[in-house]
Write a protein that binds this DNA or RNA. Structure first.
Lengths: 233, 233
DNA sequence: CGCGGCTTTGATGTTCATCAAGTAAAGTGG
DNA sequence: CCACTTTACTTGATGAACATCAAAGCCGCG
């Protein structure tokens, strides 16, 4: 019974990630994590971790939306990717260094769970099925990021923009209508082009009836055409 | 004694990767791998695996140099990275899909070791320390690839070229003088620019006394300046 | 030897960054 | 809540970076 009570206090039942992530952990291991974990909320625009921070805790995104980006003095920000829960941005580079390689910033109000790294490491080394699962997830998420990056690199401006808009529509919001969680400048940093040209391309997409746009509000009007641009544009 | 004989037949003693990779395997597990492993040689320009191939074997590069690239009909080749032994290109995406996401092609005569994937998977699930080591390596190599890709994305043409030349000098050949293992076209595919402009930039580097170049032979003459260009160019 | 791919150079045009300047929106302190 | 400041957005004009096209020499290979 006491276990049951602890589990309930833990509130992990509602976590989307629980089933996937902890499938291989024993009940008592789950409780260890539950009891040790710390949940933190972040507002839009708040840094969750910063490049160079010492890495002490394992964390995963429970709710919200974040950008993974490289902040360098003397040059523009570069956005590596935008990730939502289950994309598991958190595990990128976690095992490769003592320090974060990237900065992670909330784009929408977000909730993050922290677990002491040593606990995760000890599970991963003791419980091979858990470690294997972790490895699979790590591999999948980095694969997607890398393929996305190569796609964006290949395309020219309008193709990049179409690609990013469709990522929001298809992958992130799963809807043709949504509020952009990023500024024009951030779209530019993601695409690797200038802000002005993102604005011009958005205006042209509107003129060509591919999208409807007012401020942050976007509606995809011609997905087929936009998809074509995102592949060959 | 028989074990000893098998180990010797295996010829893994000379493998650079052995110590790193199999640190956590038991003697008998090592022997399993030794007995099951197949060594294959590839000539320059030969495909080691192709995008879309069904993934059946775990493989690692024992000797040589390879490019990881995306081959698409209707668009130029894109080189993701160039990897040597210990860079462990082999494990990228191995756990994320049944199929190879990229094509791997030898740039120099190369030797690859294949091990049946189910054996590696069974080790990874039974032997957590092995799995953890594998995960760490996977994470490190993908991190490096991703950071490199973002660097190349940020730079303009001469910066990209300087970056790539320095990768050969510092990371791959560890020498100021070396024979280019790639064509000008491949440098262009790696940088994401046109072949002609790579040639023009090479000519300009030569004119500015940054490099000496005759055919495939390269010598870095002014590494400081080239490094500066590779950071801010 | 001749064919195809690699290399090189020049000329031309397109894509895109940059600069400038102004409007709108959003945050800040009184 | 309003004045103020900053940040985001937008449009136009200009020039730089770069792709593309064309043409010719080179080299390795069947």
């Amino acid at each position: 019974m006491e276990k049951e009570v602890l589990t309930l206090n833990c509130q992990c039942e509602n976590c989307q990630l629980r089933a996937l992530f902890f499938a291989h952990l024993q009940q008592d291991e789950m409780l260890d994590i539950c009891n040790i974990r710390k949940e933190k909320s972040f507002e839009s625009n708040e840094d969750i971790v910063r490049r160079g921070d010492k890495f002490r805790e394992f964390f995963y995104l429970k709710e919200g939306l974040v950008k993974l980006h490289i902040v360098k003095s003397g040059s523009e920000d570069q956005i590596i990717t935008i990730a939502k829960p289950l994309d598991f941005i958190s595990i990128l580079s976690i095992f490769s260094s003592d320090h974060y390689q990237y900065t992670v910033t909330a784009l929408l109000p977000s909730v993050v769970c922290n677990v002491d790294m040593s606990l995760i490491k000890s599970f991963a080394t003791k419980n091979a099925a858990f470690g294997f699962d972790l490895m699979t997830r790590l591999s999948k998420s980095t694969d997607i990021v890398l393929l996305e990056t190569m796609d964006l690199k290949r395309l020219q401006l309008k193709g990049k923009l179409a690609y990013i808009l469709l990522k929001f529509a298809n992958h992130i919001f799963k809807s043709e209508r949504f509020d952009l969680p990023v500024t024009r400048k951030e779209i530019a940093e993601y695409a690797g082009v200038s802000t002005e040209n993102i604005i011009r391309a958005l205006a042209e997409f509107r003129k060509d009836q591919l999208i409807r746009i007012s401020g942050k509000e976007i509606e995809i009007l011609n997905k087929n055409r936009l998809t074509q641009i995102s592949k060959f544009g």
